[in-house]
Structure formats: structure tokens, C-alpha cells
Design a protein around this nucleic acid. Structure first.
Lengths: 247, 247
DNA sequence: TCAGTTTATTGATTTGCATCAAGCGATCTG
DNA sequence: CAGATCGCTTGATGCAAATCAATAAACTGA
């Protein structure tokens, strides 16, 4: 299937996109009328796929659009004063990236492809305008943002209250449930990001993450092979992820 | 000034409220027309002030409204599986509480007054409906949520990458700039929350926070007396807050 | 295909902060 | 007003995870 560098995608293609979960987060729970769907289609642009390491946008760039991931994966990160990188999130197909830029008008973080990644661009001013005419769309946008706040609160708890093993277990479970939501296997998936990125996101050292993977494997909780993970004892992981730092 | 237990507040009162910064976050940047302001007024309800320790809402409660703080302060927190409390935020006058409940329809955290606190209740369904008619209002709502996401990303960086001293310094600076935004002194303010709450929020032990306050004072960075803080060397604090964990 | 680079793993050592312990002032209560 | 409880502070000790160090394995590109 050939994809134009940038241009309106057909309604048929949008529907296919929804089905293949790529626009799931914004469209599916909405049950949009045919006309609304067509309107939404007209403002969405398909972009040339990004190669591994390419930037979707960089910190400080002007905010014009949000992006729905169709396939592949993205990491977002900021660069601190000291030049250190802090990973703020991993983003999978169906999810929306860039919503944290609304207030400031500039992207507060950079977004980079972790593998070959295909995204749709949704100009924000047009989405906002469309939202005033399609109440369900506006509401869904608020929902998505509210959900993002929730996820981040969860992450804050990991970082503040949980041990290294609990954090990694929790992250793996989060991935698992996100894959499951897209009807993929919940136990068997690939990590497109490096150990360094995982460690960075979890506020740990690479060595610690590496050791934990080894330990989880030796304890029979899972199998890891490079980027591939196979969860063998989901319940044990859940117990581990739930445990508070000291208890 | 007597306040009805629950009822429509007058337009005049709403304007006063905006001026006194209590609805700042939602109204002020908006420059609403007189008619719009009146509409907004009709959906806002003044609630009886909360006493210290009283709940505004509890985790699991049905989500019906967001709350704008007029005076006082609120802490939000979740309770983990192990019964441990995790403070997720401190909320000052002019700020909105409860936006994280939109997705789920139930409050994911509890909100409790840290001191005598007066709030306005804004039924969410009516706010949403009003937003479809006043585009500026809808946009402001998105902005506020986006800003909340940003703040939390910041907090995640504190927890993941910063030393104990950097975290406390950063929190004090955040308070300082929030007070300043409300045209209060940026250097001289009261902390309505306990050391335990601060420690909890920052992912530290109470003892560590206490030691840090003592050290900051002995180094001449600030003066603390019970709940009162006077920042004496803002730049040193900024340097401290900016430093990465290892550098 | 082979040097050069990046990424992952494992071991030894250090350290920042939690934990344990004890004391003190303030507020509560019968 | 005495005893209990709570919030805060300070000191001594222990441990989880960072850091340092070394090697292996996997990519990179001429």
C-alpha cells in the first residue's frame, strides 16, 4: 500500500486505520456518525514513516499538531539543564502524542522513533474547531488527557514508593495490558526500547535493570531474549509490582 | 460575608472571586464576554468551607464536579494496596481539583483540606456543555489539563533523577512561583502541609526532609519556623534544584 | 570481513537515604 | 493539670541501588 508523503487520507483508509487500532484511542469509543468520521478524515494527514532514531518533533518546536501512532513506537523525553536525558514516556500504536504542548504552544519534550514508525498528523487548531461541532470528540479528547494524568500519577507512585523490582514489574505489566487492549498477546511481546531507556524512565541505573531481568528469568517469572519478553508467571509479577517499598 | 450552604453565587461575587484569584485559572486568561461570564456563574456553586482534615471527595466517589479552590489548600492522595498513602499533589487557591477523574467516572484519589478551605463546585456535565458553546472556555480547560500533565512530568523527573536536596529545593521553588503568580510574596510563605506529607509527596522519609530543612537553614539558604518559610538565597536553591542526581 | 562502536551483562565497591531509636515541644483529653 | 498522643528534630546503623570496572555480544560501516 503506497502512502502519500503528506495529504488527506481516504475515508476508507481512516476506517481501516481505526480497525487496525491505529486511531483507536481517538475514534473507536466514539461511534461517530458517518459524516463526522468524514470530517475527521479530512483534517488527518498521513506522514512518511519515521526511521529508527528520527525525530517526530523536538523540544521547543512550535506546537501545531498532535500525532496518532499507527505502527511502531515512540519515546518522548526532555533534556535537563545538565544535558541529561529524561525519558517521559513510551508510546504505542493507537496512542496520541503531543498533548502536553497545548498550554505552552511549544513542545516541552522531544519525540523520537524507537523503530520504523508510522504516524498520522492531526492539526490541533482544526481538531479543536471540529471538537466544538462534535461534542463526543471534544469529550473524548478530555478523556484521553485525563487518562494521561492518571498514568503519570501512577508512574509517580512507582518512582516515589516502589523498589527497583516493583518498578520494572509494573512497567512490564503496563506494556502487557496495552498490548492486550490491542488484542495482541498479553504475555509475549517485544520491547522496542533499549535497557538504557527503560532504566532512564524508571529512575534506575542500566545495570540494575539488566540484573533484574536476569533475576526475573532465573526465578522463572519470565523469559527474555534481547528485545523479546515472554511472561510466564503474571501473578507473581503482579504481587511484586504491588508491593510497597518497605513491606 | 455570609455564604449559602449550596446555591448559585451572584455574578458580582464571581467577578470578585476572579479578582481575588480564586477562579483565576479557569476565568482570567479568558476575557469572557459579560453574557458568558453570567452563564458560567449560573453553574458554579459555593460550598460550605471545609475544616482541616475534612474530605472534599474520597477515592472511588462518583465524579460529578471539578472544584476551584478559593482559599486554603488541599492535598490529593491515593491509598495503595498495602494501605500506604501516596500524596499526588498539593493544590492552592485558583487551582482546579478533580480533573483526573474524567476518564473513569470515579475519583482515583481522595482530596482533603490541609486547613480551613473554601471551594467552588463546578458540575462537570454542565461545564462540558457550556464549553461546546464557549470555545474559549473549552480551550482553557484543555490548557489546564495539559499544564497538569506538564507539572507531573516535572515531578517524575524530580523523583527519578534528582537527589533528596534537589527535590525539596524544587518543591519550595514551585510553591514560591505559585504564590508569586497570585501576587503574594515569592520568598515568604506558609506551608500548610506537614513534613510527613512533603516527604510522602517527594518519595522521601520524614527524617530526611527534616534534616534537609535544618541543613538549608544552617547554610543560610532559608529560614524555617514551624510552617513558615523565608527564602533567603533563591539562586542557590535554583542551582540545587537543577543539579542532576550525580553531577 | 574485520576494526570500531554501541548495548548488555556480571562482579566488586561505595554511598545516599531509609530505618531504627530517642528526646522534645505542642496540642489534646479526661 | 497530668498523661497520652502527635509532629518535628537529631543521632547511629544498615541496606538497596548507584557507581566503578571489566568482558562479552551485537551491530556499524568502509
Amino acid at each position: 500500500m503506497s502512502v502519500p508523503e503528506s495529504g488527506v487520507i481516504s475515508l476508507k483508509r481512516l476506517q481501516t486505520a481505526c480497525e487496525s487500532c491505529s486511531l483507536f484511542q481517538l475514534c473507536l469509543p466514539l461511534e461517530l456518525a458517518h459524516d463526522d468520521l468524514e470530517e475527521l478524515d479530512h483534517i488527518i494527514k498521513q506522514r512518511r514513516p519515521l526511521q529508527r532514531g528520527e525525530y517526530l518533533f523536538q523540544m521547543g518546536n512550535e506546537f501545531r499538531a498532535v500525532y496518532a501512532i499507527r505502527s511502531g513506537s515512540i519515546k518522548t523525553f526532555t533534556t535537563t539543564d545538565g544535558g541529561e536525558e529524561q525519558v517521559t514516556g513510551f508510546h504505542l500504536p493507537s496512542e496520541l502524542v503531543g498533548l502536553d504542548a497545548i498550554t505552552t504552544g511549544n513542545h516541552p519534550c522531544s519525540a523520537r522513533a524507537l523503530e520504523t514508525t508510522s504516524v498520522c498528523e492531526i492539526p490541533f487548531d482544526r481538531l479543536e474547531e471540529l471538537g466544538t461541532r462534535i461534542p463526543g470528540l471534544q469529550r473524548q479528547l478530555l478523556r484521553i488527557m485525563s487518562h494521561e494524568i492518571l498514568t503519570e500519577q501512577d508512574t509517580m507512585i512507582w518512582l516515589g514508593k516502589k523498589s527497583a523490582e516493583a518498578r520494572l514489574a509494573a512497567l512490564l505489566l503496563r506494556f502487557s495490558s496495552r498490548f492486550k487492549a490491542r488484542k495482541f498477546s498479553a504475555c509475549d511481546f517485544n520491547l522496542s526500547m533499549s535497557r538504557t531507556d527503560i532504566a532512564n524512565y524508571l529512575g534506575l541505573a542500566v545495570e540494575t535493570v539488566s540484573r533484574l531481568f536476569s533475576r526475573f528469568q532465573s526465578e522463572g517469572l519470565l523469559e527474555v531474549d534481547r528485545k523479546h519478553v515472554l511472561i510466564k508467571d503474571m501473578e507473581a509479577l503482579e504481587r511484586m509490582a504491588g508491593a510497597d517499598h518497605h513491606s
